[in-house]
């Protein structure tokens, strides 16, 4: 595991979300006031782009599509969220922010896994 420089600390103002790419891997950096978090760019619910659609306020990250929320301080899901966010480890050194992004964190995809439905039985089923 190696630390990669993501950005300057001042590149992400408080309560802002910014998207960066390191080693070909996209991640979102959140400045929640108490520190920084880095996570994959898509909501684990339905793949919403969190950088565009999430709101960061009072230490709480909220995806505006279905109001799933995560506490940035503890890193845990809260409210109606059903899945945890995955985080890259981050650290501040000097004026810069570093993260460990050796490989992309991915959520288990729970759709598109069902059997093919287009056999003859499908259209003749009761």
């Amino acid at each position: 595991m190696s630390w990669e420089k993501i950005c300057g600390v001042s590149d992400v103002p408080e309560n802002a979300l910014e998207k960066f790419e390191v080693n070909g891997i996209e991640l979102v950096v959140a400045n929640y006031g108490g520190g920084f978090r880095a996570f994959p760019p898509r909501c684990p619910h339905m793949e919403e782009a969190l950088c565009d659609s999430a709101v960061l306020f009072d230490g709480m990250l909220t995806c505006t599509k279905h109001l799933w929320q995560w506490d940035m301080g503890s890193g845990e899901k809260t409210g109606i969220a059903e899945k945890e966010l995955l985080f890259y480890d981050v650290k501040q050194e000097g004026g810069d922010l570093y993260a460990q992004v050796d490989e992309a964190l991915v959520y288990e995809d729970d759709d598109d896994e069902d059997e093919d439905e287009d056999d003859e039985d499908f259209f003749n089923a009761d």
Partner: peptide, 10 residues
Amino acid sequence: PAQPSGNPKH
């Protein structure tokens, strides 16, 4: 892409 009231890929 995401739609105004929906998510990407749906």
